[in-house]
């Protein structure tokens, strides 16, 4: 990748950052909203084209894959921008779902079916439903002040986009990774099958699909990480129970033989 392209990439990220900054919700009504969206859209399109030209396109043989890559990338980027810029929290959650689904589709395009569906089940199915649940419980009518105003928009945008630019520059740099292995490496990395075959029957691996590959690599190569994650989740679970557990007297003072009027006498209110 020539320096020109790299600078173009960074410039596009700067543009995108400026667009998102302008589009972030602020208290006063302003006409920059549209401009921000336009800038953001331009940055998204430009970034996509750059990425498509220098990273994905050379390794991709099917044009349909290419098309869907652009489609889902655009959906994901647009939805991601709306997650942070939409003033209504419920819409942010819905856009987050869209991001999760679009990213799952991108992962699916790379042949990692298991990861894609796991992303949907875990993110869209569990975490974001809980978000939506909490948002609905917390705020039933109207839009509150703290939702319509971004906190520290400048710092957040600069930090976020600088980090993204750094990562993208690194990925797009042919010296950082072997150019031939770019897309396949990504695919096998997420599928967990990039290493030397650990399945008992290497020939059957291609047919067995990546669910089995993921299972094998999780239970052999990454078993310690897996167990650690399990322990971490358990600790989180125990902690959550410990936090919410109040000592609730169970049927306090209720004597089944007592006359009806006495029942519930010592039950405390909340």
């Amino acid at each position: 990748m020539s320096p020109t392209v790299a600078y173009l990439l960074y410039a596009l990220f700067a543009l995108g950052g400026a667009g998102v900054y302008l589009a972030l919700p602020r208290s006063q009504a302003r006409p920059t909203h549209v401009a921000g969206l336009l800038l953001g859209a331009g940055a998204i399109v430009g970034g996509l084209m750059l990425l498509g030209t220098y990273v994905i396109a050379p390794s991709s043989t099917e044009s349909s894959t290419n098309f869907f890559f652009y489609l889902f990338s655009a959906i994901a980027l647009f939805a991601a921008a709306r997650v942070v810029t939409h003033p209504k929290p419920v819409y942010s959650a819905v856009y987050f779902v869209a991001v999760a689904v679009a990213v799952a589709a991108l992962v699916l395009l790379q042949g990692a079916e298991f990861l894609a569906i796991a992303l949907i089940i875990v993110y869209a199915g569990a975490i974001l439903v809980t978000y939506a649940f909490v948002i609905m419980l917390a705020q039933q009518t109207g839009v509150s002040v703290y939702d319509t105003r971004a906190r520290e928009p400048f710092a957040a945008v600069v930090l976020g986009f600088a980090a993204m630019a750094a990562i993208a520059g690194r990925i797009a740099d042919p010296n950082a990774l072997p150019a031939t292995a770019l897309a396949p490496a990504t695919a096998s990395l997420v599928a967990g099958a990039g290493e030397a075959p650990v399945t008992p029957d290497a020939g059957a691996e291609a047919q067995a699909g990546n669910t089995i590959s993921v299972g094998w690599s999780l239970m052999t190569k990454y078993v310690v990480v897996l167990e650690l994650a399990g322990v971490l989740l358990l600790v989180g679970l125990v902690g959550a129970i410990a936090l919410v557990k109040k000592k609730v007297p169970r049927d306090v003072g209720v004597d089944p033989e007592a006359p009806l009027g006495q029942i519930g006498k010592e039950v405390e209110p909340f």
Partner: peptide
């Protein structure tokens, strides 16, 4: 299963 999860929405 994933569809079941999405059905909640």
């Amino acid at each position: 299963l994933g569809l079941g999860a999405m059905g909640v929405y």
